[in-house]
Amino acid sequence: MTITQLHYVLAVAEHKNFTLAAEKCFVTQPTLSMQIQKIEEELGIQIFDRSKKPIQLTDIGLKIVTQAKNIVNEANRIKDIVDQQKGFIGGDFRLGIIPTIMPTLLPMFLNNFIKKYPKVNLIIEELNTDEIIIKLKNGHLDAAIAATPLQEEKIKEVVLFYEPFVAYIPESHAVFEKKEIEVSDLVLDEILLLQDGHCFRDGILNLCKNNPGTVDKFNFHIESGSFETLIKLANEGLGTTLLPYLHTLDLKEKDKGKLKHFKDPKPAREVSLIYPKNELKIHIIDALRHVITGVVRGAIAFQDIQIISPKK
């Protein structure tokens, strides 16, 4: 059997469809089917149960796919070893970033990185945490930037920085006059939230779980994918919201007056560079980490913090 044949097996296992797998592998469907059939004949077993729709792995096929992933990863490591020996930092690098980090962090480091490492072709995707985990495990991302800890068995987490939560309070609110606030000053019923699927939303729910409120203050319910929408609604006196610290740096001056920092220890999220434990392309991962920590170090100087989990 060949590495190429194993790639075909993994593609069918992922997409559960020979035609779609062939498209993803840039070969014809008959070619892909023939190569998989050759492996099955060589091993004397069936990897896929073709009678089911969508196509399913057989029991032995599931074990073969697990091993095939290991073999393909180890084969890819050979090129990594050569690149590191030559001191070469280049090639395609697929990076996922969660939506609540992408708009603020990416502009801070991207220009520096591409100037310092012009031979790296960064392919960046905005994805939620669940999508990132799936793509990392399936080999469709080399690394990602996300809120941690995630405690995923096959994923390594390297902390980049800690980003405090900052409250955005309209002038009409009872705690607006406070210089610093406490978590107990917030009522979950009043907080305008991001829509489900955002880990920052889950962090807020974890932070305020002991202050749920008793009665809805407003006769509407909204969950938005945009901090800007939440800020505008808060400006209308329709609630409060919480923002990641880096997002507050770009606010208009008139809006910055509505920001309220928490007393120490400040609630914060842990932001990490995450990647598979096989550490493929670790030389590019390390380069990315050094660039990001270098630019963020000057922007975030908070020390006394309390990490809020991004997991429900």
Rank of each mutant, 00 (worst) to 15 (best):
K258Q: 15
K154Y: 09
L32S: 06
V72R: 06
E126Q: 14
H247W: 09
A75R: 01
F302Q: 10
K252L: 13
V72G: 07
F113Q: 12
M34I: 13
L6P: 00
E253L: 14
A68G: 01
E157T: 03
L95P: 05
E42R: 04
N76E: 15
E14D: 09
V27C: 09
R94D: 03
R50D: 00
I282Q: 12
K137T: 08
D264N: 15
T293D: 08
I123Y: 07
K63P: 00
P170Y: 14
Q37H: 15
T100L: 00
I181K: 05
P267R: 12
G294Q: 15
S172P: 04
A299C: 14
T241K: 02
Y162E: 15
V166G: 05
D80I: 09
N206K: 13
I36K: 04
H7C: 05
Q5P: 00
I284C: 09
D130G: 04
N17V: 06
L207E: 05
G213L: 07
I282M: 15
D264F: 11
A174P: 03
F200S: 09
F200T: 11
L233K: 05
E223I: 00
L242R: 02
G90M: 04
N219H: 13
K24A: 12
E131H: 14
L280G: 12
T129R: 11
I308E: 10
C208D: 09
V296H: 07
Y8A: 02
L193E: 01
H7G: 07
G294I: 11
L207K: 09
A167W: 12
A75I: 04
I132R: 04
I191Q: 00
A144P: 01
F220W: 08
L105R: 03
F109R: 00
K254Q: 14
E14F: 11
L57N: 04
P103K: 03
K232R: 13
P276Q: 13
A174K: 15
D49F: 03
T129W: 07
K252S: 06
D130F: 12
T4K: 13
L160H: 03
G44A: 02
A268D: 06
L238S: 08
K252F: 10
V27T: 10
L246P: 01
E152I: 15
L136E: 03
M1T: 08
L43D: 02
A68E: 01
F218M: 01
V291S: 02
P276I: 12
E180N: 14
L192A: 08
S172L: 13
P310R: 11
S309E: 08
D286M: 14
K178H: 12
E270N: 11
K254I: 12
G239Y: 03
K115V: 13
M34F: 14
K69L: 03
P265K: 02
N128H: 13
Q67R: 11
I308K: 09
V295W: 10
N206D: 10
Q303M: 11
S224R: 01
H173D: 15
F109N: 01
G237R: 10
I134W: 05
K154W: 06
T293P: 03
Q29F: 09
R94E: 03
